[in-house]
Write a protein that binds this DNA or RNA. Sequence first.
DNA 1: GCGACAG
DNA 2: ATCTTGTCGC
Length: 226
Amino acid sequence: MNLELKNFNAVFNVNHAIKIQEELSERIIDRDLLPHPIRYVCGVDVSYSNGLAFTCAVTLSYPELSLVEVICSTVKVTLPYLPGFLAFRELKPIIRTMRKRYYPVDVLFIDGHGRAHPRLFGLACHVGLSLNIPTIGVAKRLLCGKILYNTLVDGLYYPVLYKGNIVGAALKVKDERIIGAYVSIGHKVSLRTAVKLTFNCIRFGCSPEPLRLAHIYSKSFRRHFC
DNA sequence: GCGACAG
DNA sequence: ATCTTGTCGC
C-alpha cells in the first residue's frame, strides 16, 4: 500500500469506501427520468483555501441560460483528495450548498465523473443518488477507460470504454478534435441526453455554462472570504 | 513491477 | 484543486 493510501486510511477506511461505492453503484438509474420541459439547469463547483471548502451552486434558466440564482456555502475540509474517492471530500460541501437553493433544479452538472469511474460510481453518481435528482458528470480529463476514436456517435462524441461498458463520452467539436470535456451520467439520465444537454449548455470554451459560472463564482467567493 | 491517477 | 509572471498566439 502506497503512502497516499496510508495517510488516507488514517482518517478514512478505503476498503469501506470501495464497498459503499460498489453497493450504491447498482442503484444508479441510466434512463431519462427528467422533467420536461427542462426549465432550470444547475452547476456546482468547489474551491479550496486554508482547510476550507468554498462551494457555489449556479442555477440558470433553460434553454436561455440566463442567471437566476447563485448560492454559496463554506465548510471545513475533512479529507484529502485521492483519485477515485473525490466524493468523500466534496459530497458534504455540495449537498449543504444545494439544500440552500430556492429555485428547483431539473438537472445538475457536476465537475467530475459519473459512471466513468473505476467502480462506476464517481462524484456525479454520488451526488445524484444522495439528492435523488438527475445529474451529469463533466470532467476535463479521463480517470479511467479508453476513447473509441473509430466510433463517432451522432457526430457528437466518441464513446469511452471501460471494462466492456460504454461509461462516458469524449465530446467532439470539429474535425477529429476532442473538446476538453468528458461526459458521463450521474443519475436519472441517459448518456445520449447527457451529451445533448451538455452541448446545449456550452456557450464559451468547453464547459457547460452552469459549471463554468460555478467555477468562477466559487473562486471569487473564496477570494472575498480570505 | 510499472504507469496512471476526476478535483 | 492550489501556488504564480510573463508570455506565445489567435
